[in-house]
Structure formats: C-alpha cells, structure tokens
Computed example of a mutant assay.
Amino acid sequence: MSDKLFSTRDEPLASADLDVCRRVHEALCIELDIDRGSEKAEKIGALIIELYRQGVHDEHQLHLMAGGRHA
C-alpha cells in the first residue's frame, strides 16, 4: 500500500498531545460557560483536535482559533 494514502493527520495523538488539547478544551468551556458534556463542547473539542492535527500546537493559538477571547 502506498505511503501517500496516509498522512501525519491520521496518526493517533500521544498522551502529551491529548493533554494540550484537554487543557485548551477545559479552558474554553469555562471561559465560554459551556457544559463539558454538551454538543457544543463536543464540537469545540473536535475543532481543537483538528487544529492540533493541522499543526497548531501552541495552547494560546489553539485557544484563540477555537473561539477563545484574546487574553
């Protein structure tokens, strides 16, 4: 099978990667007053992971790009 069919975006996230995404998600849910079990929180979580997979690894940038306010 060709390596071109797979990209780094298809690789599972490591524990440290997930920790970054989790911290950003928790901060956004608090900032935006969103219940972490809600559909909106799920969508924000998916967006954070997608941004991370696209190469946005800085927590502050993830926070802003996922809908957070400029601190």
Results as ranks from 00 to 15, higher is better:
S7C: 07
Q54G: 03
R53Y: 09
S7Y: 07
K43P: 00
Q61H: 04
L18V: 09
C29A: 10
L28M: 05
A41H: 15
G37C: 11
R53E: 07
I49H: 09
A16W: 09
S15V: 00
I48N: 01
R36T: 02
I49D: 06
S7I: 04
P12E: 09
D10Y: 12
L62M: 04
A46E: 15
V20E: 14
G37Y: 11
D35W: 02
I48Y: 00
C21S: 06
L18N: 01
I48L: 03
L32Y: 01
V20M: 13
D19F: 07
D19T: 07
Q54N: 09
A41K: 15
R36N: 04
L32D: 05
F6S: 08
R22P: 06
R36P: 15
L32A: 08
L47G: 03
H57I: 14
G45D: 09
F6N: 10
C29E: 06
E31A: 07
D17F: 06
G45Q: 08
F6A: 10
I34A: 12
L47D: 06
S2L: 08
R53F: 08
A41Q: 15
R22G: 05
E26T: 03
K4R: 09
E11L: 13
H57S: 10
L47R: 08
G37L: 13
D35E: 04
H60K: 14
E39I: 00
V56C: 10
K40I: 01
H57T: 09
L28S: 05
L51V: 05
A16R: 15
T8R: 04
G55V: 11
G37V: 11
D17I: 03
L18Q: 03
V20R: 15
I30C: 08
E11K: 07
V20T: 12
K4G: 06
Q61C: 00
E59P: 14
R23M: 08
S7W: 11
A46V: 11
E11F: 14
G55I: 12
R53L: 11
R22E: 07
A14D: 01
E59K: 13
E59G: 03
I34C: 15
E50Y: 12
V24F: 15
G45V: 14
E31P: 00
I30V: 10
R23W: 08
E59Q: 11
R9H: 12
G55Q: 13
A27K: 06
I44H: 01
R22V: 04
R9Q: 14
K43Y: 07
E26I: 10
F6M: 08
D33S: 14
G55M: 12
S7R: 14
L62V: 01
E39V: 03
I44V: 13
R9F: 04
D10H: 11
A46S: 14
